[in-house]
Simulated scan of single mutants.
Amino acid sequence: MAREAKTIAIAGAGSIGCYVGGCLALAGRKVVLLARPRVEATLRKDGLRVSDLDGRDRRLAPEALSVTADPAAALAGADIVLVTVKSGATEEMTALIAAHARPEAVVVSLQNGVGNADRLRAGLAGRRVLAGMVPFNIVQSPDGEAPFRMHRASEGKVMVEDGVAGLAGLLDVEGLAVETHADMKAVLWGKLLMNLNNALVALSGLPLATELADRRWRLILAGQIGEALAAMKACGIQPARIAGLRPALLPKVLGLPDWMFRRLARRMLAIDPEARSSMWDDLQRGRPTEIGELQGAVLALAEKAGVPAPLTAGVLALVREAERQKRGSPGLAPEAVTPGRRSG
Results as ranks from 00 to 15, higher is better:
R216H: 13
Q111H: 13
A78C: 11
P207A: 12
R285V: 01
L318W: 02
L33C: 05
R102T: 12
S204K: 02
H181R: 14
V67L: 10
A165N: 03
G296Q: 11
L43C: 13
A243T: 07
D162E: 15
L75C: 06
M232T: 07
E40V: 04
L82G: 05
A309Q: 06
R287F: 04
A95C: 08
L212T: 01
R121W: 07
S66W: 10
G331Y: 08
R246K: 12
K30F: 02
S15P: 01
F148E: 04
L200R: 06
L193M: 10
V67G: 05
H151N: 12
E274N: 03
A117Q: 06
L283N: 03
L200W: 07
S109P: 07
A322K: 00
M268E: 04
R216P: 13
S329G: 12
A309S: 12
A98G: 15
R267V: 02
R49Q: 14
A333G: 11
D52T: 08
R3P: 00
T180E: 14
A64D: 15
A41M: 07
I291R: 00
A76W: 02
W259A: 15
I220Q: 01
V337D: 05
W189E: 03
P135D: 09
V107Q: 00
R216Y: 11
P135Q: 12
R246C: 03
P330V: 02
L203A: 09
E303N: 09
A168F: 10
A69K: 07
D183H: 13
A270S: 13
I16S: 01
G328S: 13
P71R: 05
A234D: 12
P334K: 08
L264A: 14
A98D: 14
K157C: 11
H100Q: 04
K157A: 15
T312K: 01
H181A: 15
D214A: 14
A131E: 05
G255A: 15
S277T: 10
K191G: 08
N198L: 12
A11F: 03
S329K: 04
G88M: 01
C18L: 14
V108S: 05
P239Y: 04
D282V: 12
K252R: 14
I225W: 02
L229C: 06
A153M: 07
A101S: 13
V20H: 02
I138G: 02
V164E: 14
E92Q: 15
E92D: 12
I220V: 15
A99H: 10
P247H: 09
A61T: 09
L65G: 03
R38M: 10
L206V: 06
I138L: 06
V50N: 02
L167E: 03
M260D: 00
G255W: 09
A209Y: 03
L53W: 05
E174D: 15
G205F: 03
Q224F: 00
L332C: 10
L250R: 06
